[in-house]
Write a protein that binds this DNA or RNA. Structure first.
Lengths: 154, 154
DNA sequence: GTCGATGCAAAGGCTTTGCACAGCC
DNA sequence: GGCTGTGCAAAGCCTTTGCATCGAC
């Protein structure tokens, strides 16, 4: 897979921003482009986003990274993960996998993704029962990866 | 329900501590007792624990509250919640409901609990597929409670 | 009496914010 | 050209830690 396949047209960002009366800046494009470059499965912290952009000589201040992550999340282009283990992390929001969950090794942080329609069904049932309007349904499976499970035995 | 029904014998704490070569202090008893007093459904932050203890004239420093919450969690007597909305929170670990999940209103913070065997099944399947050893399986349903859903319409 | 636990205050991450300047529309 | 976004540095949480003292065993 040497080819890069951008998930969102540049205009998607432009349009979303314009609708909210906000501007398309190089910084915002760089942050979103970074997530598109690394693909859907990657979960980055603000600090990591900042570091990666610096490495590719794309100058964005850390404060702006924070501001941009919040903005892109609120626009639904990024999604915040709920993994207490390693602080706040973000990933590209994927319409293709609305019901994707995380399997996290609590020892080394290794994260695998998986899908499960059953989980969404359970969430919908619970929301319905209490009269809530469901927004998002996130299953976090805390576990030990094979390597760490072996290490724990010792 | 004017009667209080303690979930754990005082000796449970004493034993757990003793096994780890640690001491049964009034502070540790007070923190655990607070959680038992308020019951299973309550989710408290460190700050709230501190405040509630102060209100009942039980002097425990905030630093000790933090230390104790971590200790009790690592012993499995308390359980940390993964609700990004309101910071880190703890609840009494309940063997009775190993598969209990949370329905959270992202607007007002109202939290309802529910159970679902299907979720645990999905988590086990995912863990098994990747060779992970499952520790915990937590479903967070982010939603709008009836009141907040109505308010949003406006 | 010993060694772990507590309290206090200071240090430490991570995240947000105030302000002047830069640059998108 | 106006007004939003950025960068920088400072401020703000929340949480942890160092150290002297206290107290459980």
């Amino acid at each position: 897979m040497p080819l890069q396949t951008p998930r969102a047209q540049p205009s998607a960002l432009r349009t979303s921003l314009h609708d909210r009366g906000q501007r398309l800046t190089p910084q915002r494009q760089r942050v979103l482009a970074l997530f598109e470059r690394i693909g859907e499965g990657s979960h980055l912290s603000a600090e990591e986003v900042h570091q990666r952009l610096l490495r590719s000589s794309e100058r964005v201040s850390l404060a702006t990274v924070y501001r941009t992550l919040r903005l892109l999340s609120s626009m639904g282009l990024l999604q915040e993960l709920e993994l207490p283990e390693g602080g706040r992390r973000f990933e590209l929001a994927s319409d293709a996998h609305p019901d994707h969950h995380h399997l996290v090794c609590v020892r080394c942080g290794r994260t695998e993704e998986f899908e499960s329609g059953a989980v969404l069904t359970a969430g919908e049932a619970a929301a319905g029962q209490h009269g809530f309007r469901l927004l998002e349904c996130v299953l976090n499976v805390r576990a030990l990866c094979p390597a760490c499970a072996a290490a724990e035995q010792a």
